[in-house]
């Protein structure tokens, strides 16, 4: 995966089979997470993907959510599924070439953001980094947790690079 580059009016990227399958799986997982969501406050990932519009009034936030959340959630599910669909692999192929027009690229940018927000929230990511990856064993997590976090963070970083390349390709 060398990232997205401009190709005429489109942007194009080639993904290795495993990378394509990983990203498609993550996209579908985020779509399911959003589609099957419960009440606000149940899951920090969903609270970040569908945040309160009002900080200082729970009443206003709930009222606003009643009118907007359903459509916003549907859009996010559709964007995530669009990513998964454009990564469909044909049997026997070693890689997947993704070609996006301006509209597809918009869906990809939004969905990549949502996937990264989901992973970043699960990791407890802050501006200073990931707590579980601090080393020294003071975080209280097991070695297994640290391994999991390291893997998740590696995937997160890869998706950041994919998105960065897409922003620059779209914004030539």
């Amino acid at each position: 995966m060398n990232g997205f580059r401009r190709s005429g009016d489109d942007v194009v990227a080639k993904f290795g089979l495993e990378d394509a399958e990983l990203l498609a799986t993550l996209a579908r997982q985020v779509a399911v997470l959003i589609a099957d969501r419960g009440e606000p406050g149940d899951d920090p990932v969903l609270d970040r993907l569908l945040p309160d519009a009002y900080r200082d009034s729970a009443e206003d936030a709930a009222e606003f959510r009643r009118f907007t959340e359903s459509e916003l959630g549907d859009q996010k599910v559709a964007n995530a599924l669009a990513i998964a669909e454009s990564l469909d692999t044909s049997p026997g192929s070693k890689n997947v070439t993704v070609r996006l027009d301006a509209g597809d690229a918009m869906s990809w940018l939004r969905a990549l953001t949502d996937i990264r927000l989901a992973l970043g929230t699960r990791l407890g990511l802050t501006d200073e980094g990931v707590p579980d990856l601090g080393g020294g064993g003071s975080g209280g997590g097991s070695e297994h947790d640290a391994d999991q976090s390291a893997l998740t963070y590696a995937i997160y970083s890869w998706l950041s690079a994919v998105q960065e390349s897409l922003v620059h390709a779209v914004d030539r």
Partner: peptide, 12 residues
């Protein structure tokens, strides 16, 4: 601010 969104994306 959030720790996830890219500066390039936000500017765009």
């Amino acid at each position: 601010n959030d720790p996830v969104n890219l500066v390039s994306y936000v500017e765009w």
